[in-house]
Simulated scan of single mutants.
Amino acid sequence: MNGFKEEPMPVVPSAPPLQPPNSADQTFSIINYGCTAGPPDHFTSSPPVPWSTGLCDCCDDVSSCCLTCWCPCITFGRIAEIIDRGSTSCGVSGALYTLILCVTGCSCMYSCFYRSKLRGQYFLVEQPCTDCCVHCCCEGCSLCQEYRELKNHGLDMSIGWHGNVERRKRSAAMKPAVYQGMKR
């Protein structure tokens, strides 16, 4: 018609679809991913994993249980600092928790938000009921469980986010490089 000959469009092969991760790839923490913002996007559809300890296993870590019993604001502040990856400090989060507790008596509404964030970061199952119900019915036990979960992921809760990042950098720098010789 116009003197132009229509040529067929070239076929471009598409990339294979992403496969779900195997069971070894389902646990993510600062240890696995260093200081990144989180796991890769294709892992967001991972099946939920169980908590490392139960809700009522408070006596598994007596020191955190006592800390939570006498000063839940400190426990919450430490949890919030780690979950927020250092963008909020332990002191600010703990003070806000205490202020909400003193003014309204409903600090559980604030802390249940962080339980949801923690579950999202580590792909944890929402159990034994919703996050809000767990915090409203048993605030102390839920804070202890979250604290233990973060400790079980290799974090030292007493040094905060930035301390854990520095510790991770030091341990990575101290690992000797192992070179293997030629093999036949």
Score class of each variant (00 low, 15 high):
residue 20 P to W: 00
residue 20 P to G: 05
residue 21 P to A: 15
residue 22 N to E: 07
residue 25 D to M: 10
residue 25 D to E: 14
residue 25 D to Q: 15
residue 26 Q to K: 12
residue 26 Q to N: 06
residue 27 T to C: 01
residue 28 F to V: 06
residue 28 F to K: 00
residue 28 F to Q: 00
residue 29 S to E: 02
residue 30 I to C: 02
residue 30 I to K: 02
residue 32 N to D: 04
residue 33 Y to E: 01
residue 33 Y to R: 00
residue 34 G to A: 08
residue 37 A to E: 06
residue 38 G to I: 07
residue 41 D to I: 01
residue 43 F to H: 03
residue 47 P to R: 03
residue 50 P to K: 03
residue 51 W to A: 04
residue 52 S to G: 05
residue 53 T to I: 03
residue 54 G to R: 01
residue 54 G to T: 07
residue 55 L to A: 05
residue 55 L to E: 04
residue 55 L to K: 07
residue 55 L to S: 01
residue 55 L to D: 00
residue 56 C to I: 05
residue 56 C to D: 13
residue 56 C to S: 09
residue 59 C to W: 03
residue 59 C to I: 07
residue 62 V to H: 06
residue 63 S to P: 06
residue 65 C to Q: 07
residue 65 C to N: 06
residue 67 L to E: 12
residue 67 L to G: 02
residue 68 T to D: 13
residue 68 T to R: 05
residue 69 C to P: 01
residue 69 C to R: 08
residue 70 W to A: 11
residue 70 W to C: 10
residue 72 P to W: 14
residue 72 P to E: 09
residue 74 I to D: 03
residue 76 F to E: 11
residue 76 F to G: 15
residue 77 G to P: 14
residue 77 G to T: 11
residue 77 G to W: 06
residue 78 R to G: 06
residue 79 I to A: 09
residue 79 I to N: 09
residue 80 A to C: 14
residue 81 E to A: 07
residue 82 I to N: 07
residue 84 D to Y: 09
residue 84 D to A: 13
residue 85 R to C: 06
residue 87 S to W: 02
residue 87 S to Y: 04
residue 87 S to E: 14
residue 91 G to F: 04
residue 91 G to N: 07
residue 92 V to H: 01
residue 93 S to H: 07
residue 94 G to Y: 10
residue 95 A to L: 12
residue 95 A to H: 03
residue 95 A to N: 10
residue 96 L to H: 02
residue 97 Y to I: 06
residue 97 Y to C: 11
residue 97 Y to M: 07
residue 98 T to I: 06
residue 98 T to H: 03
residue 98 T to R: 08
residue 100 I to W: 03
residue 101 L to I: 04
residue 101 L to T: 14
residue 101 L to F: 15
residue 102 C to N: 09
residue 103 V to E: 03
residue 103 V to I: 15
residue 103 V to T: 15
residue 104 T to H: 09
residue 105 G to N: 11
residue 106 C to A: 13
residue 107 S to E: 13
residue 111 S to G: 08
residue 111 S to W: 04
residue 112 C to L: 10
residue 112 C to I: 05
residue 113 F to K: 03
residue 113 F to Q: 09
residue 113 F to C: 12
residue 114 Y to P: 04
residue 114 Y to D: 08
residue 114 Y to M: 03
residue 116 S to E: 08
residue 116 S to N: 08
residue 117 K to Q: 08
residue 118 L to S: 06
residue 120 G to Q: 08
residue 121 Q to W: 06
residue 121 Q to F: 08
residue 123 F to G: 03
residue 123 F to T: 08
residue 124 L to K: 12
residue 126 E to K: 12
residue 126 E to F: 10
residue 127 Q to K: 12
residue 128 P to W: 08
residue 129 C to P: 01
residue 129 C to F: 12
residue 131 D to A: 15
residue 132 C to G: 07
residue 132 C to H: 06
residue 132 C to V: 05
residue 132 C to R: 01
residue 132 C to F: 12
residue 134 V to S: 15
residue 136 C to A: 15
residue 137 C to Q: 11
residue 138 C to L: 10
residue 139 E to M: 14
residue 139 E to S: 15
